[in-house]
């Protein structure tokens, strides 16, 4: 079995507990206007060009060129087919760090559960190795996809972007019904959950209280993390030839602090930002 991934990030510090390696799967059902991984939206491989990085070596004019040959990293292929056997040794490289820090491996994306069978296979192998596993999901997946990975995922990093359906549609293009249902389901079966709330001024800033009230009664939420919106991804949109949908206004540190405090007061969970 293979999957399409677009990045492996080592020393990931904010993707679950401890020091982690995160695998980014390609393809996502949502289209969040603020998406900072636009290279993860479609499942098909894409080539991006960062013209300013080209060193003019001419490799790409040669027969048999692959983006791997582009040392300037000006031509980048997002989307690589991999097998679990190929991934495993790479993910185990930082095993010592996972052990000393309580970290592990996180599957993210895009939406990793669009390739749920592969995720299940990979997670199973990781569990055999005794590695802590996290699945970072937008939640817009079928219950059966969730069920595939539940036995092998130690924690779910679960995005909640809006509570009101219309706001969710405005922000992501799709309804959040399934997302909220899946979250209730995960909680009901006792899975550890870390909630992630992207905070995007002018888009979901009015949703914070509602989200918090919705989450308050959950039993298995270990923490909530507020992710301040940032606009670093602009150059990626350009390189991929995509229309840049990124909002203009950035949240201030003060704003984020206030939001986090508000969530804390309402839910009583640990809130990080």
């Amino acid at each position: 079995m293979t999957a399409t991934i677009f990045e492996i990030k080592r020393f990931a510090v904010h993707d679950g507990d401890g020091i982690r390696t995160t695998v980014f799967f390609k393809g996502c059902p949502l289209r969040c206007v603020w998406c900072h991984n636009p290279e993860g939206l479609t499942n098909a491989p894409q080539t991006a060009r960062y013209a300013h990085k080209c060193i003019g070596c001419g490799e790409c004019k040669k027969e048999g060129f692959t983006p791997d040959d582009c040392l300037g990293e000006a031509t980048v292929l997002y989307g690589k087919e991999v097998t679990a056997e190929e991934l495993l040794p790479i993910l185990l490289e930082d095993r010592d760090f996972y052990e000393t820090s309580g970290g592990g491996v996180t599957l993210s994306g895009g939406e990793c559960l669009m390739q749920a069978d592969f995720c299940a296979e990979l997670l199973k192998e990781l569990k055999k190795e005794g590695i802590h596993t996290a699945v970072d999901t937008c939640g817009f997946v079928s219950k059966s996809a969730l069920d595939k990975v539940i036995p092998y995922a130690d924690v779910f990093l679960y995005d909640v972007k809006a509570y009101d359906e219309d706001v969710h549609i405005k922000c992501t293009g799709l309804s959040n019904k399934q997302i909220l249902q899946n979250l209730i389901y995960l909680d009901s079966i006792g899975k550890d959950i870390e909630i992630r709330i992207p905070y995007v001024p002018d888009y979901n800033d009015g949703q914070i209280e509602k989200i918090a009230c919705f989450l308050a009664p959950f039993k298995n939420i270990k923490k909530i993390r507020v992710l301040p919106y940032h606009n670093y991804a602009g150059s990626k949109y350009e390189a991929l030839g995509l229309q840049n949908t990124l909002p203009d206004r950035l949240p201030t540190d003060e704003e984020i602090k206030r939001v986090a405090e508000k969530i804390k007061v309402i839910t009583n969970f640990v809130v990080l930002y």
Partner: peptide, 13 residues
């Protein structure tokens, strides 16, 4: 806090 824990993890590893 995660960042601090990560620094500790790097050091201890």
């Amino acid at each position: 806090d995660d960042g601090l824990e990560a620094m500790h993890g790097l050091l201890m590893t």
